[in-house]
């Protein structure tokens, strides 16, 4: 056990933890966040995705000790039901979900890519989503929502 400090969605936390605990379990169990989820625990599906340093991170395989000073952003950190982030708003408008379990992977990966490269092509966005699984296959609506967001932010 070690005392570990974390910044998640703008809030600081100090927790006593086994430093090898996957970040995902800390987010779910210690901090009660619902955005990132356990899909596979093996970085194969993206359901656990968070953003750190502008980069996609699969929180199910990152030990919490590796987070350090970097701020962690989860899906709920982007926006709220009262004030959704524009990418969330685009997804809401397109109804781009069925069960919704995969959304952290889809929304956060797309947002992180577009933050780095606002003019990323459809192909580049799709390639970045190569590690994300949506088994309900809401792909068409999701890509339409992403495109809508990308175009709006370019404008």
């Amino acid at each position: 056990m070690r005392e570990i400090t974390l910044t998640v969605n703008g809030k600081h936390h100090t927790l006593a933890l086994d430093p090898e605990t996957p970040l995902l379990f800390v987010l779910n169990d210690e901090l009660g966040l619902c955005g990132p989820r356990f899909g596979c625990g093996m970085a194969q599906c993206g359901a656990c995705t968070v953003i750190m340093r502008g980069q996609v991170v699969r929180s199910c395989v990152m030990p919490v000790s590796a987070v350090g000073q970097d701020e962690v952003t989860t899906l709920e950190g982007l926006g709220t039901p009262e004030k959704p982030h524009p990418i969330q708003q685009a997804f809401i408008e397109e109804g781009a979900a069925q069960c919704g379990f995969c959304l952290s992977g889809v929304i956060l990966t797309a947002k992180a890519v577009l933050d780095v490269k606002p003019d990323a092509s459809d192909q580049a966005i799709r390639d970045a989503l190569g590690g994300v699984l949506c088994r309900c296959f809401t792909h068409t609506r999701m890509l339409r929502a992403i495109r809508k967001y990308a175009e709006a932010r370019r404008a």
Binding site: C34, P81, P84, G95, G100, I107
Partner: peptide, 18 residues
């Protein structure tokens, strides 16, 4: 529009996992 959309997209929706 499906009633769960906003909760799902903003990460507030609680699954059995939560």
């Amino acid at each position: 529009p499906s009633l769960d959309r906003t909760g799902l997209m903003t990460g507030k929706f609680e699954f059995v996992h939560h």
